[in-house]
Amino acid sequence: MKLRIKYEKTGVLRFIGHLDVMRYFQKAIRRAKLDVAYSKGFSPHQIISFAAPMPLGMTSSGEYFDGEFVSVTTAEDMKNRLNDTMADGIKVLDITMLPENAKNSMSVVSASDYFIYTNEECENDYMERLISKIDELKCLEHVEVLKKTKTKEEMSDIKPYIYEIKKFNYTIAENGVNESKSGIYMLLASGSRMNVKPESVLGALAGLSGVEYNPYDYRVHRLETYMGERDCLEPLLRAGAIF
């Protein structure tokens, strides 16, 4: 049985890399005594696969991985068992069961939305100035950013892939306190076909505002990961059903 597991990663765990999170969940599944399936062969490993890799420094309340299980109980029970063994900062939010023919999460990711706010360590807060340039950015025909691949660097127009951008207020829970922050909301293409980093959009806004862009002045929080075409985006969880 194939399950899709949605989790959040917040607070200081933003400094844990993607590979370490994968290894973290392999251990968590064992601690929770879930009946995960193992591959065959001399050194069997759990059959789990993660959706969008998360860059270091980013927090999220919309991360996913898929896992193959030999037997399941209920979504609620499995979620609770996992959460009983979690470190502070990682929490399982939801679990659904995927149909047998479902594509794996990594291949279906098409967009993500983000909330960007000022890092409390930041000395010069330019957020209001960036926000004031959102409308100007929306009117631009092209937004050219430098894209680096393994082999080359080239300019690329990301404008068509900025699906939505607006001023936004959101409550961030960190260090055990909930704090309402004002910042920017972005819905951007992500996944293997086209991937726009929120930092690229922030950089463009900084350029329009004439302020220096320092990535560590901002915190990026992924709100949700989506599948489907631009006009009918759905959270990844929707591919499955409640059990």
Binding site: I16, G17, A87, E121
Partner: peptide, 27 residues
């Protein structure tokens, strides 16, 4: 918990996970 090192430092060193603690079974 707030960290001893600032974002700017942690993001510019190798393996920041060495310095943040918060592991499973930490007392």
């Amino acid at each position: 918990m707030s960290l001893a090192l600032k974002e700017r430092i942690l993001m510019n060193i190798e393996k920041p996970a060495r310095y943040i603690g918060n592991e499973v079974n930490m007392v």
